[in-house]
């Protein structure tokens, strides 16, 4: 099957000028349409950095390599254009936006994406209906959606709100950066169900996680190990079990 997300020999650094620090060192990875891949790897390996480089965060510089979505270069695009192309990041640390209610924010985002694709805006009643349905699936209190984005939300609530946004925006390619951290056992299952509901032949997903547990619910087609800015090993779902049992030492040693 053709690759949906294709990353080739990607190198990137963070910071400016003298302060610049190389983090990704020729990372290659591809996710075919319809597949879910997991990325595991030690703290500080560059997993979040990869998610930011893909989505175009300021302060990250691509120093080599390419990344394409359905064959089109995404690295040259503004962050909002990448979002409109269907790229979504569930943040490891969701950001608080005081003064901007969740509903206002998500509806603005949805209409901005629709506009840039030449589609009509969603009507307020349609949006509210959709928002209610999704909030219910994720057991989010509708009152929470009137509050400013993430302000005063618990760690788990913030993660659920990321998935709420993802389910409303229906992106084509999703990067989930440690969405499972901070979720209680029930929330983990609910969130996983939400994610699974988005699995479709035309969609792809990269799931960054430290724990096997999430992968029990979201069964990945492949598991990649990211260490020191590269993919050092790729395997099937059983690779996650092996890492859970043995830690990273074994695969790191094999890779050298």
């Amino acid at each position: 099957m053709a690759s949906m997300l294709k990353i080739e020999k990607l190198s990137a650094s963070v910071g400016e000028g003298e302060e610049a620090k190389a983090i990704l060192h020729g990372l290659s990875l591809s996710v075919p349409a319809g597949e879910v891949h997991a990325i595991m790897g030690p703290n500080g390996a560059g997993k979040s950095t990869l998610s930011y480089v893909l989505t175009g965060r300021e302060g990250y510089t691509v120093t080599g390599g390419t990344a394409t979505l359905d064959g089109a270069d995404i690295l040259a695009l503004e962050p909002e254009a990448r979002a409109a192309a269907g790229l979504f990041l569930s943040f490891q640390y969701p950001v608080e936006i005081p003064g901007v209610p969740v509903m206002t924010f998500v509806r603005t985002a949805m209409n901005a994406q629709r506009k840039s694709r030449g589609e009509a805006e969603i009507s307020a009643p349609d949006f509210i209906k959709k928002s209610r349905e999704i909030a219910k699936v994720l057991s989010l209190d509708p009152e929470m959606l009137k509050r400013p984005v993430n302000v005063g939300f618990s760690g788990g609530e913030k993660k659920r709100l990321e998935i709420y946004q993802m389910m409303i925006l229906e992106p084509r390619f999703m990067v989930l950066d440690e969405t499972d951290s901070g979720l209680d056992i029930d929330a983990l299952r609910t969130v996983a169900e939400g994610v699974n509901a988005l699995r479709a032949p035309g969609r792809g997903m990269l799931v960054i996680t430290h724990y096997q547990r999430l992968l029990d619910y979201i069964k990945p087609d492949k598991v990649h190990v990211l260490a020191k800015g590269r993919i050092i090993k790729t395997g099937g779902p059983d690779l996650a079990h092996r890492l859970e049992a043995e830690g990273y030492d074994g695969v790191l040693a094999e890779a050298v």
């Binding site: 175009g56 990041l89 949805m110 901005a112 400013p148």
Partner: peptide, 27 residues
Amino acid sequence: AAQLFYLRQRGIALVQARALLTEAFIA
């Protein structure tokens, strides 16, 4: 910058993201 990026990642263009944050700021 983190707030701006969060909004832009969701598809809100820079000018509109800036407007949304500034409007909240002066509210």
